[in-house]
C-alpha cells in the first residue's frame, strides 16, 4: 500500500474508527495475540490521551468546573472533531471555547465557554514574546501636538477579554491548592472586562473599569491618542484623559508608543 494512503487511512481510523474505506486489517498484520484493530487501538489510546492531556494542562479550571469524567468526554468529542494542525501540542485547543458554545451537554454551565476563553488567553500570554523596555519615558518630551498623534501599543504578553459572567471570580476561586467548594458566586452580579497579562513571568488577570477598558480597546485598535481622547470624552463626559493615560501606563498595560 502506498505510504500516503496507509498513513491517511491510519489517522482516519484512529480518530474516526467507524469511518474510512481502508480498514486496519488491510495494512496491519494480525498476530497470535492481537487483531489489526487491537494493535491500532493501542495507538488510538495513547494519541487521544496525549492530546487530551494537553487540554487538561491548558484548561484546568474548566476541568474542575465540569468534573474529570465530563471534561474527558467533552475533550474526546472535541479532539475527534478538531484535528491538530501544528506539530506543537502546546498550542492545541484554541477553539475549545467555541466548541463548548455548541456542546449541548455543557449548557448547564453557561459561563464555561468564557472560562475556556480566559484559560486560552492565559496560555497564549504565558509564552508570548518577551519585550524589551519600552520608550514611554520619551513621552514627557513630546509637544502637546505630537502627543495627540501618538499610537500606543499593548504589551505583546497581554490580551483583553469581556464576559457577561463574573469569570475572574470563578477562575480565582479555582486557583491554588485550597479550593473552597462551599463558596458560591452569584452569577447575577454581572459581567467583567479583563486584561490578562504577564508581568515579568507572573501571570495576572485583572478587572478593568469602564475607562480603562475603553482606553485599552482603542489602543488595541491602533487609534491615535487624539482619536482616543475624542471618543472617550464623548462616551464619558468629564473624563480626565491625562489621568487615564497615567493609570494605564503605571499599571504596565502600555509597552511603547510610535508617532503616526
Amino acid at each position: 500500500m502506498q505510504l500516503r494512503k496507509l498513513q491517511t487511512a491510519m489517522l482516519e481510523s484512529i480518530f474516526h474508527p467507524s469511518q474510512g474505506e481502508v480498514k486496519p486489517q488491510h495494512y496491519i498484520s494480525e498476530t497470535a495475540v492481537f487483531s489489526a484493530e487491537q494493535q491500532l487501538d493501542i495507538y488510538r489510546g495513547s494519541i487521544i490521551s496525549g492530546i487530551s492531556g494537553a487540554l487538561d494542562n491548558t484548561y484546568p479550571v474548566c476541568r474542575q468546573l465540569t468534573g474529570g469524567d465530563f471534561f474527558d468526554a467533552m475533550a474526546h468529542e472535541y479532539i475527534v472533531n478538531t484535528p491538530s494542525l501544528h506539530p506543537d501540542l502546546n498550542i492545541y485547543g484554541r477553539t475549545l471555547a467555541e466548541f463548548i458554545d455548541n456542546f449541548e451537554p455543557a449548557n448547564e454551565l453557561p459561563y464555561l465557554s468564557d472560562i475556556a476563553r480566559l484559560e486560552w488567553l492565559l496560555a497564549e500570554v504565558f509564552s508570548a514574546a518577551d519585550e524589551r523596555l519600552g520608550n514611554l519615558d520619551e513621552l514627557a518630551y513630546l509637544s502637546e501636538q505630537d502627543l495627540q498623534k501618538v499610537i500606543f501599543q499593548l504589551p505583546l504578553a497581554s490580551r483583553l477579554l469581556q464576559s457577561d459572567f463574573p469569570v475572574e471570580a470563578i477562575w480565582s476561586m479555582h486557583q491554588g491548592a485550597d479550593i473552597n467548594h462551599d463558596e458560591e458566586i452569584n452569577l447575577d452580579q454581572g459581567g467583567v472586562k479583563l486584561i490578562v497579562w504577564r508581568d515579568g513571568l507572573d501571570m495576572k488577570v485583572e478587572i478593568l473599569d469602564e475607562h480603562q477598558w475603553s482606553f485599552l480597546v482603542h489602543i488595541q485598535q491602533q487609534h491615535n491618542f487624539s482619536s482616543i481622547c475624542e471618543s472617550m470624552i464623548n462616551d464619558f463626559p468629564g473624563v480626565d484623559m491625562g489621568h487615564e493615560l497615567a493609570r494605564v501606563i503605571q499599571a504596565g498595560w502600555v509597552s511603547f508608543f510610535r508617532s503616526a
Partner: peptide, 25 residues
C-alpha cells in the same frame, strides 16, 4: 517515525512500514 499526514498531527511516534518507499522518503 511519522506523526502527521495531510496536515493533521497525531502527536505520537508512529512506526513506519519497513519498505523501499519509506526508506527512500
Amino acid at each position: 517515525c511519522w506523526s502527521s499526514v495531510a496536515g493533521c498531527h497525531g502527536h505520537e511516534l508512529l512506526p513506519l512500514p519497513y519498505t523501499e518507499e519509506a526508506v527512500a522518503l
